[in-house]
Design a binder for these strands. Structure first.
Lengths: 359, 359
DNA sequence: TCTGGACAAGAGACCGGTCTCATATATAAA
DNA sequence: TTTATATATGAGACCGGTCTCTTGTCCAGA
């Protein structure tokens, strides 16, 4: 409180110019680092700027140049480790390239996403990275494109939109996990997702509006179909959005006339909830039931047993998305590209090998 | 690619005004939502704006008003659950109040923090929330204050700076945890921090530059001193910044002539690493050793046994910090306030009750 | 000595909003 | 009818930078 808060008008180039006895244009040249100035004048101006503690007003700068140096990122929920890691990847690349990142949460709500996009466009971000909440509603994303702001989709893709996308190879990953479970002797495999749908059961998988979820579901189904397994669809359950609902989903699955012998959780949050549900039910993993979770979250290594996971290189995905956007910002007129980043299965101890008799 | 990317100059109030056959000032009035206009003209302008797909340029708006509607947040590492939760709290409050949040990572590096602050000031943020990497270097923070940008410190406080701060009640929390361990019969209690110091051992605790860490260390020491325990200082170890180093710290502690019977981890990341170290060493919790971790991270509930934690309401802390900043932005000339948010101990199964013979 | 080109610095428009002040019209009071 | 007052719109300055265009200097070559 020493210095009473006089909201003193900030120091401008004009102020510096006056103090240095040069024109505004000249002062701007040295302060902005463009054009030519003599060394003598440069020093004068710099000295004056230092004395007055001049700080450039990036806002004004952005307004004339039309570039804000900001990349807008719209994610489902920063609190989710998946997104925070991705954001970290994005930020790291952005910072290296001299860009800043402004993050907005959509909470996976279409409306929130729309207004976040509007707002960021209003702030004149140079480019956008968006995790679309739904892949079937894209007018607002088309707008971005039309306004001329480069856009990269993250985690989910919308082919019809014709823009770059960086995702995981969800279909393959799901197939791989399913293949592994089949190889271990499992024949009734459940897939549990947090996807918020009307019912717990899966209708037409093509109607799932989130492409990542859809691809995973289809991968699980495809692999089982190839193995000649019917009823696979019966074991796909949606709506595990919180602990009570997850408990319900898991309980109902296990009360089935033919309960599944293995569960696949669609992300690390669902995985954690499923694990807790099983714990509550007093079931032992993998003796009573096997499980696999998407994403190599930290909790998966400290449980007993540690959880077998499908590891997505999320940080890399974030980096890739940012790199893609930045090269586009740098005017590289590249072709639209959809990159699916390869995932791998980390085998730990949560999947049992079933003897034939149990199958 | 349907619509070739003509970087068409964006639609301005002047364009709308022309289309609506009114003056720029009038169009600005209805578009900006200030001043008075007749309903008839309002409709004309709105119609024209809709037809042209007018989007206000927030940059230009900010430049004249001097307010950007942005709150800058500088954290140690968004990837850390502690910060991402706090950021969520901040964002939620900010959004409700019509502010946006721009996040910068300092990586707990003083220089990165300085440049982040400079950059945000340059962007003319309306206010700042900063997690200072060091509490003994504060010139750049003084600058913020002098420039007239409201500042709230988060998680760590710097009394000399005379600005608002929202922290946990670290000293009390550490005392409480220590008290609990003492009550359970423990007499050799180790405190492990990720604080990056020259040596692994604690010199003068007052020299710790991070106030949160310092307070916790002092709380642990104070409570033991009150209980007549000497050598407490011997069991304070720093530098558990990654898994190998944590393994080393834990190993050396346990190889001590008089090894500790309980460990306190300074945050959830350190806690996770310590848990893994103990696991690697084949030690059973709490039979062979007890542990408590700061922060109620998700992993702490799914371990066997679940971990006793000191629960900091991080989301609330974030909210509180944002509320504080926003009321200051709204011109409430409030007194400087340092808020320490109360924490609680969640007893789970990682602390053993020691029989007297073992003490 | 004169001309041309390179170079340094100045003048002022511009970006897209906000906002003050002046002007014109409508309504109410005298 | 005249004057006062409120109300709606227009004209243009301003925010703090960037950038184009012009002017003025200096020195080399003819």
């Amino acid at each position: 409180m020493e210095e009473p808060l006089i909201p003193k008008r900030s120091v401008t180039v004009a102020d510096v110019a006056r103090a240095a006895n040069v024109s505004k244009a000249t002062a701007a040249r040295v302060l902005g680092g463009y054009g030519v100035v003599s060394d003598k004048v440069r020093e004068q101006v710099l000295a004056a700027a230092a004395a007055l503690e001049y700080r450039p007003n990036e806002l004004a700068r952005s307004m004339t140049t039309g570039k804000s140096g900001i990349i807008g990122v719209v994610v489902g929920d920063i609190e989710n480790a998946f997104f925070s890691l991705a954001v970290r990847g994005i930020s790291d690349v952005a910072r290296m390239a001299g860009f800043n990142v402004i993050i907005a949460n959509s909470g996976e709500e279409l409306d929130a996403e729309k207004s976040a996009v509007d707002l960021l466009i209003g702030k004149r971000v140079d480019g956008l990275i968006v995790t679309p909440a739904r892949c079937d509603r894209m007018e607002h994303l088309q707008d971005i494109h039309r306004v001329g702001v480069p856009l990269v989709l993250f985690d989910r893709s919308i082919p019809e939109l014709g823009v770059d996308a960086v995702t995981g190879d969800d279909f393959d990953a799901a197939m791989m996990a399913t293949r592994y479970l089949l190889d271990m002797g499992h024949r009734r495999i459940a897939y549990i997702s947090a996807m918020d749908a009307e019912g717990e059961f899966l209708g037409d998988s093509r109607s799932i509006s989130n492409s990542a979820v859809r691809e995973r579901v289809e991968g699980v189904l495809k692999e089982q179909a190839d193995a000649g397994i019917r009823k696979a669809r019966h074991y796909v359950r949606l709506g595990a959005t919180d602990q009570p609902r997850t408990d319900g989903v898991v309980e109902r699955l296990l009360q089935d006339a033919a309960p599944p012998t293995a569960l696949i959780a669609s992300d690390s949050l669902v995985g954690l909830r499923v694990f807790k549900s099983l714990q509550t039910l007093g079931l032992s993993i993998p003796r009573d039931i096997s499980m696999i979770s998407f994403l190599d979250a930290d909790w998966t290594t400290v449980t007993t047993p540690p959880i077998t996971v499908i590891d997505q290189p999320v940080y890399e995905m974030g980096k890739k998305a940012a790199e893609r956007l930045i090269s586009r910002l740098n005017g590289k007129g590249m072709l639209v590209e959809r990159t699916a980043i390869k995932t791998s299965l980390i085998r730990r101890g949560s999947v049992a090998s079933l003897p034939l008799s149990d199958q």
